[in-house]
Design a protein around this nucleic acid. Structure first.
Length: 286
DNA sequence: CACGTCACCTGCGTGC
DNA sequence: TGCACGCAGGTGACGT
């Protein structure tokens, strides 16, 4: 479901709710949600951990837990990838597990490894994932999970020059290349189509045929659409409504047959690498 | 290395 | 109403 702006929005929403809380227990309701470790070890290791921070790398949520040993000890990280249909919500009071809840963490409102006190209000972090594609890792070595990712498109090391060099050093169609998380990390099907349209580049154009000027345009377009997505709190499609409204501002994604907002030409849909791809045949020439 | 295909899953809208 | 089909914001493992 989510791409970089949606995951960023979730991280920002969860952060003030989670930081400082203690994880009392884990209810693993679908074992394969855990990429590592086993459900048994997961429950043992996460119990009593205090949440230090809530971050994002690419489409991964990165929840840092108590350092093992002060001050240099390694810290566990809870890494969560929502894939197509995952969602994270905070609940409190008397909750009952819903149909597609895959993992439920019980939280205490302050550092209290031994848990429950009288009158202490517990909250829950619920991972709901209809299609079961989402995955959760608990590890003290995040490089093992995140190590192959390309640069963050909103970071300083993503520059026009870097993008130009990276594009021309490969022979790939632009759309699949931008979806490749080892190339750039965080773009998905929506924001890739939006960025290519904004940059006026055809999704099937070969990366090594891009000029320096076009690479600059693409660089700026990628940042622009991601920032707009974040500003609008992401896009809300499906039944999972998260309050974002970027879906009302798509230029081409999901607008097959409608008019291009720039030139009025009918937007075309093709399939590239099994993914729906939307573009303006007039603005985006090969 | 680049690209195509399938697998992993569930649910929803469409058309017969 | 039932049913088949296509589609969905992602990724990884294959084969050529």
């Amino acid at each position: 479901m989510p791409e970089l702006p949606e995951v960023e929005t979730i991280a920002r929403t969860l952060r003030p709710e989670l930081v400082g809380k203690t994880i009392l227990e884990a209810d693993v309701r679908w074992a394969r949600t855990l990429a590592m470790p086993s459900a048994k070890k997961f429950r043992e290791q996460i119990q009593g951990q205090v949440i230090q921070s809530v971050g994002r790398r690419a489409k991964f949520l990165n929840i840092q837990l108590t350092p093992l040993r002060e001050p240099q000890g390694r810290a566990y990280h809870l890494l969560i990838h929502l894939r197509m249909s995952g969602d994270l919500v905070i609940k409190d009071g008397k909750i009952k597990a819903e149909k597609h809840d895959r993992l439920i963490l019980t939280l205490a409102p302050f550092p209290s490894p031994h848990g429950r006190g009288v009158g202490v209000k517990e909250t829950y972090l619920v991972f709901n994932d209809t299609r079961k594609f989402g995955r959760v890792w608990l590890t003290d070595n995040i490089e093992k999970v995140l190590g192959k990712l390309g640069p963050e498109p909103l970071s300083d090391d993503f520059t026009p020059q870097w993008l130009y060099n990276a594009l021309v050093s490969r022979h790939r169609q632009l759309k699949p290349l931008l979806l490749d998380q080892t190339f750039i990390a965080g773009l998905g099907n929506i924001y890739t189509d939006e960025a290519l349209h904004t940059a006026k580049l055809h999704p099937l154009k070969s990366s090594n045929s891009v000029t320096k000027r076009q690479a600059e345009r693409l660089h700026d377009a990628i940042r622009e659409v991601l920032r707009e997505g974040i500003r609008r709190n992401g896009a809300s499609i499906d039944r999972v409504y998260r309050g974002g409204d970027f879906q009302n501002h798509f230029r081409v994604y999901g607008r097959t047959g409608e008019k291009c907002p720039v030139c009025g030409t009918k937007i075309k849909r093709i399939v590239v690498g099994q993914r729906s791809t939307h573009f303006c045949p007039n603005c985006q020439r090969k």
